[in-house]
Each structure stands twice: as C-alpha cells, then as structure tokens.
C-alpha cells in the first residue's frame, strides 16, 4: 500500500494529537485530582429510602473539621433537602440517589454535575470556596414537570454558618 508522504505526516500528527488528548485528561485525573463518579457505594432499593439512614432524612451533616456530607434525594420533581446550606471554605461530599426515575444533580455554573440513577448512589466531593447562592437543576429528562425541578445551594460566610442541632 503506498501512502502519500503528506498523508503519512498527517497521520503522525493525528496520532500525536490523540495521544496528547489522552495525556491531558490523564493529567486532569492524576495531577489535578478530578475523580470520576464511580461505583464506590453499594446499590439500594429506591422504594426503601425511608429505611436508609442516609436518605430517610435528607440533610447536611458535619463530619470533620471543614468537612460536610450532604445526603440528597432527587425525585419527580424536587430535590431534598432544599435549600442545601454549607459554609464557605468547606469540602462537601454529596451522596445523591433517586426515589423514582433517572435525574441529574447539577450545580449551575460549576462542574459539579452527576447523573442520579435509581438504585445507585452517586458520590461527589466538591470544594466550596465562595459564599453565595448557586442554582441546582436536573438536566436529565424525568417526566412532564422536568423543567420545574430545581434547588438551591446556599454557601454561607464561614463565621455565620451554624448547622441546626449543632453547638
């Protein structure tokens, strides 16, 4: 098979490009530490969320110094709890599951974005810097009221934050 010289050059450049892309993404994973949503949590029956200690009562919990865990349930067509309140300068791990169909949990204007699949628990650890209000929306079609499904993440200034039931 004879391949034109230019075409060989092009082929080589294409391979360099491809390998470069893969290297960039690998750096994002290993160097910067952007982890993918994975299979770290066991499955659960979406009909039994009421018996699950995390999701029976969707809430935010203080688990360490600056560390919080948010247990979130997405269902047609709301997020629970709403709003989700955390302090600035904290690290929040979201545990999100669905009570019915497939949804997403997406914090608008950030890359905190995950699918929410019934039976699975999505976990995502997010560093929260700035105080302010962030919209949360569902970006997977989930039924006739899909466009009404929204929530709010309120990030309080560090010194003004006080989690209910905590001294």
């Amino acid at each position: 098979m004879n391949i034109h010289t230019y075409e060989k050059l092009w082929l080589a450049a294409a391979m360099v490009l491809i390998v470069g892309f893969i290297a960039t993404i690998t750096y994002g994973s290993v160097g910067v530490g952007v982890a993918m949503i994975d299979d770290s949590e066991a499955t659960l029956d979406p009909n039994d969320l009421g018996e699950d200690e995390r999701f029976a009562e969707p809430r935010v919990e203080h688990v360490g110094d600056n560390e919080y865990e948010a247990y979130v349930v997405a269902r047609q067509f709301i997020f629970q709890p709403n709003p989700i309140e955390v302090p600035a300068g904290s690290t929040v791990t979201f545990y999100v599951t669905s009570a019915d169909v497939i949804h997403s949990f997406s914090i608008v204007g950030t890359n905190a974005n995950t699918m929410v699949i019934p039976g699975e628990v999505a976990t995502m650890t997010v560093e929260i810097d700035e105080p302010g209000e962030y919209g949360i929306l569902c970006n997977e079609y989930c039924g006739a009221g899909h466009h009404d499904m929204e929530g709010l993440l309120i990030v309080h200034p560090e010194d003004e934050f006080d989690l209910e039931g905590e001294e």
């Binding site: 082929l11 490009l17 893969i22 994973s29 993918m36 299979d39 699918m115 929410v116 039976g119 699975e120």
Partner: peptide
C-alpha cells in the same frame, strides 16, 4: 457521570473514543 460504573472502565472507553478521531 453515571454512578455504578468504575472510573477504570470509563478511562478505557475514553481511550477507544479518542482513537476514533483517527
């Protein structure tokens, strides 16, 4: 972004996808 699929599988598939650019 699906929960329930390990990161490694996602990486393998990504590699295949980039080679489809060729």
């Amino acid at each position: 972004l699906d929960p329930g699929i390990a990161e490694g599988f996602k990486f393998i598939v990504m590699t295949n996808t980039f080679f489809l650019l060729l």
